[in-house]
């Protein structure tokens, strides 16, 4: 009877990559720039993903976990990740030096529907580590500035020391073609030059056309409820309010089932969901 032929393509097979640069963003969050080792893959893979997608980072002997991509496909060549030391895999990642190898799979997930956002005003709200996936979309919008209407970026952190990409945002604040507002909950050293208070206090600066605005939020779970209330107060429709979520994932391809909520697989139906999805699928946030 017939012979069995196997495809060489196995989506579970990780791809080797090299850490080209790393530095600490805050006390426990580190920034990694990573380049795929296979030169044929570097450009196609790093230029074709969507902001908001994630990758599985794999370290042999330790395991695999999902991380959002914080770089933008409009600046291909490298993948950037912003990683907090919190568990077994991330602790091991923090021991790696520049030029060490790690392994990647992906990109996975739906990402932000950028094509639906074209021509709209964009309103970003980031809290803490939530800045990581939003930075991807923000840089993408800035690199394609002509495609979008007004741009507002609101970013909250606990203290000035905990603010991710602090210097980068200080510089972006200088730009005249978009509005960037930064706030901290507390300022123990007393040298913070901008707003103080929770991120929702920055909504007083926001002036968008609500019926033609895409609002995006990412941050710690407690933040969603309050930020979403502000979006609704502005009059932004449910279907234009996007949030990106996280869950435990082992495959990234809608198979292992560990990210399932109701009947949605966060890895393939998400991680970006609209407020409409959240209202219909109980347990998403």
């Amino acid at each position: 009877m017939h012979e069995i032929l196997y495809h060489q393509d196995n989506p579970y097979m990780p791809e080797r990559a090299r850490i080209v640069r790393k530095y600490d963003l805050t006390g426990d969050v580190r920034f990694f720039q990573v380049r795929l080792c296979n030169p044929d893959k570097v450009f196609p893979v790093t230029s074709s993903y969507s902001p908001g997608q994630f990758m599985m980072i794999s370290l042999p002997y330790v395991g695999e976990a999902p991380f959002s991509i914080t770089s933008t496909p409009s600046r291909p060549g490298l993948f950037e990740f912003c990683i907090r030391k919190v568990g077994r895999l991330t602790s091991r990642l923090f021991q790696l030096e520049e030029n060490d190898f790690l392994w990647l799979r992906g990109p996975f997930g739906n990402g932000f529907p950028v094509e639906k956002m074209i021509g709209k005003d964009l309103l970003f709200v980031a809290g803490g580590l939530g800045a990581a996936p939003l930075r991807s979309l923000l840089l993408y919008a800035l690199d394609n500035r002509d495609l979008f209407g007004k741009l507002f970026y609101l970013h909250g952190a606990r203290t000035p020391r905990d603010m991710l990409f602090r210097e980068e945002f200080f510089q972006l604040k200088q730009r005249k073609d978009f509005r960037c507002y930064l706030t901290v909950d507390e300022d123990p050293e007393g040298d913070w030059p901008f707003d103080k208070g929770v991120v929702t206090s920055l909504f007083k600066y926001v002036k968008v056309n609500p019926r033609n605005t895409a609002a995006v939020v990412c941050g710690p779970p407690v933040m969603y409820k309050y930020v979403v209330q502000e979006f609704i107060k502005l009059g932004i429709p449910d279907a234009n309010i996007y949030m990106t979520l996280e869950r435990k994932m082992k495959c990234g391809m809608g198979k292992c089932g560990q990210c399932v909520v109701g009947h949605k697989y966060v890895c393939v139906d998400g991680p970006v969901f609209t407020l409409w999805d959240v209202k219909n699928v109980k347990g998403l946030i």
Binding site: Y12, P60, Y61, V62, G63, E64, K250, C251, K255, C256, G257, Q258, V260
Partner: peptide, 18 residues
Amino acid sequence: TCFDLEDEYDLKRAEMHR
């Protein structure tokens, strides 16, 4: 259909098994 993936070290063969 759900499954888990874990890395294990095979001492005899000096290789890692996922």
